[in-house]
Design a binder for these strands. Structure first.
Lengths: 191, 191
DNA sequence: ACCTGAACACCGTTCAAGT
DNA sequence: ACCTGAACACCGTTCAAGT
């Protein structure tokens, strides 16, 4: 005899994201998610294949949220100002959502990884700006340099790895400024 | 009645490192380590406080190994060549020991993290070279920029995150070259 | 058609009992 | 003094039984 559904995939993903933000990935257990949506753990398997798929669905939402955040920041006409705005927005987002940030950039089992096309969307605004700064020929290398720096910086900042003193905000500004000039060099528009 | 020890902390750490390199951190279970040294899992608790401490001991060894690798690479007289050599050695080491790399740079529970002074030793060669290139005033910011870039790059390369085509080796060379010039700018020795 | 308790195979960890 | 089986509290996951 059919019984009405008491939850939904959307509700499960939303509950999972809330648990992630509040207490981190390791606190994201099937039974805790189930409790949050008002069922028992085994019932979740009617909506998701397993914990890995749930993690992947959450990561997809997070990637889309980040893409929107970066798109919204990339409104400057000047590409140097645009790059700075993207970098600043990225850092602000990462510091505000550290667990979500790690979900995107830490290593995860293959079946928990974000869909490639969703991931590509996050990189879009940056790729366009890098192309403007570095020229088409070096756009990809330039974007990779900036993305690598930004990811490494936030990973270290969130891990508390900057332990040798100094001002972390200043180190970030230094990096943005120097990288902007570095990828601009040798562009078709001159130094 | 006293019985002779059948294993040692060193043997446990070495076995743990071997399992880590072979199959990754999640395969590093207490029972697997115990089997590798010829005892049962509960016996490990005579030598280490728990899995977290074992992970930390392994991470310390890994950090020291990396520090030696980077020190050995930093022999060039020219600081630009030195920076390139350090970066290349770092990448080669990370690609050869991906699990060890992640153990050092991924987020871990506090009680599993490398001792701060051991961690600082890894950064030493780079800090000296950065000081030569960027000048004392910007040495720390410059080192942070380079370390962030290198960590981010390897994290992405190991995660298979460079999926938009192009040559990854070339992107690495591009990054090294541009970063070297970027942190050198405005040094007391001129451009 | 959905939900559940019970069960299974794993973890890390503790501890009384063996030697 | 060290080692062990048994036990405990957790995981994720499966499945027969309930409604």
């Amino acid at each position: 005899m059919p019984t009405p559904a008491r939850t939904s995939t959307d509700a499960i993903v939303a509950a999972g994201r809330a648990i992630l933000d509040a207490d981190g990935l390791e606190a994201l257990t099937m039974s805790r998610v189930a409790a949050a949506v008002g069922v028992r753990a085994p019932s979740l398997y009617k909506r998701v294949r397993g914990r890995s798929e749930l993690v992947r669905l959450i990561a997809n939402d997070v990637a889309i949220e980040l893409a929107h955040t970066l798109d919204a920041a990339a409104t400057a006409k000047d590409p140097a100002a645009g790059l700075r705005a993207i970098a600043v927005a990225f850092r602000a987002w990462a510091l505000a959502h550290p667990e979500a940030y790690h979900l995107l950039f830490d290593r995860l089992p293959d079946d928990a990884r974000v869909d490639p096309q969703v991931n590509a969307r996050s990189a879009d605004a940056l790729l366009r700006t890098a192309a403007e700064l570095a020229g088409e020929r070096h756009a990809l290398d330039a974007a990779r340099t900036v993305v690598a720096w930004a990811n490494g910086f936030l990973n270290m900042e969130l891990a508390g790895a900057f332990r040798l003193g100094g001002d972390v905000d200043e180190a970030f500004d230094f990096g943005v400024e120097r990288l902007t000039r570095a990828i601009r060099e040798e562009s078709p528009f001159g130094p």
